Amino acid sequence: MKVLADIGHPAHVHFYKNAWKCLIEAGHEVVVSSRAKECAVDLLDALGVEHRCLSRQNDGRPQGMGREYVSRLRNLVGLVHAERPDVLTGVGGIFAAHAGVLCRRPSVVFYDTENATLQNALTYPVATRLYVPDCYKGWTPNRRTVRYPGYHELAYLRPKYFVPNRELALLHCGLAPFGDTFLVRVVSWQANHDLGEKGWSETTLRAVVHKLEELGRVVISTETPLPPDLARYVYQGPPEHLHHLLAFCRACIGESATLVSESAVLGVPALYAAETSRGYLEDLQDQYGLVTVLRSTEPKAVCQGISRMLDAPLSDVRDRHARLLENSCDVTETIYGALTAETL
């Protein structure tokens, strides 16, 4: 069979990469469409994955999103007609689902973000099958939804698929040779699920950096240019090596739900500070204590949240992380099974 995977974000590359390998090893064919957003194209190129870039990240305004939607869907429909895949898939999946309807192909959508209300309202009613984590709190179509025990990030960060390399993190990614390293993540807030939201102010970012640099080395992973006085903290390593750095950090602090979740499934405590949360972040907080969810981006509140997180004893983090892995399925196997199901 032939699978077409539509990639719109760097995290989607990681989510699918091991399933692609399993599909190809089993004799299936994989076609990948990509989007020029942050380092998504660079990640695909680094993995040696052939792909067709169909659009570039819009400016985050409704008009820009609308223009990209029309252009990308038109290009994806053309690719489907040319490649004739048996199934389309995507994370969030609006383009895979809509192209599937237009081209009469089944679509399998994976998602975990409840507050992407517009995208979900346009996608879920027409997707052939929707896969969400057990902790997902939003509406889904009952008869076409499959729930699984796990988190997206386990598709690529479960120990079966990822072994962190300390030497690589030291040589190329900015890990401190001695003492603690803290990874800070800021985002552009231009995704469809970011409509009406705003991220950290420069004041908040500076306050976080100044607090953390008293405790160790600070590295900032960012989607947008930083002020000149913070430029020296920017992550300089290859994008495909960021997880090697994260795995050896003392903590991760940021406004990216994905990177915070990645930190947690690696067993690294994390703090998420933003106006809205996610079901999976609250689950990682309530069930395993590996994430602290803070519904504020004010400098004082974020710094106090960091202090509380770092005051918690690390002695049981390893046990909590082990319990998380034990209670979660192999998400890559779930992806493979979903895409090869005979009942689509």
Rank of each mutant, 00 (worst) to 15 (best):
L122M: 14
D134N: 14
F110P: 14
G267I: 04
N115Y: 07
D286H: 13
Y69E: 06
R206G: 11
L122N: 09
G305R: 02
P228R: 14
W189C: 04
C303V: 12
V291T: 06
N120Y: 03
C249H: 02
T292M: 00
P238N: 13
Q63M: 01
M1P: 15
C39H: 11
V31N: 01
Q304S: 14
R308V: 08
R206V: 04
R61A: 03
D283Q: 10
D45W: 00
N142L: 12
V208Y: 08
S201H: 06
W139Y: 11
E25D: 15
E167I: 10
D59A: 08
A274T: 10
E197K: 03
F15N: 13
E167G: 14
S328N: 05
G27C: 12
A97F: 07
D86M: 01
D311K: 14
K17P: 04
G267P: 05
C53G: 00
L281W: 01
V30L: 05
T117W: 04
C303Q: 08
L154R: 03
L44P: 10
L175C: 09
V146T: 15
A26G: 11
V70G: 02
H12I: 01
I24D: 10
V13Q: 11
A97H: 08
E214H: 13
I94F: 06
N142V: 12
V331R: 13
G196C: 05
P177E: 13
C22H: 14
L266A: 07
Y131G: 04
R185T: 11
E167T: 15
P228E: 11
Y288Q: 12
T343Q: 11
L339N: 13
L271F: 05
T89W: 01
P177Q: 08
N58L: 00
R232H: 15
Y16D: 06
V302N: 09
V302F: 00
D319V: 12
T222K: 01
D42A: 13
V31P: 02
G66H: 01
S107C: 03
N142H: 11
W189Q: 04
L47N: 14
V208L: 06
S277D: 06
S188N: 12
T334D: 05
I7E: 05
T222P: 10
L154T: 04
V234T: 15
L171G: 09
N75F: 00
P125Q: 06
L324T: 07
D283F: 01
Y272I: 03
S277E: 07
L157P: 10
E50I: 02
W139N: 13
P225L: 00
V234F: 00
A301R: 14
T340L: 05
E262L: 02
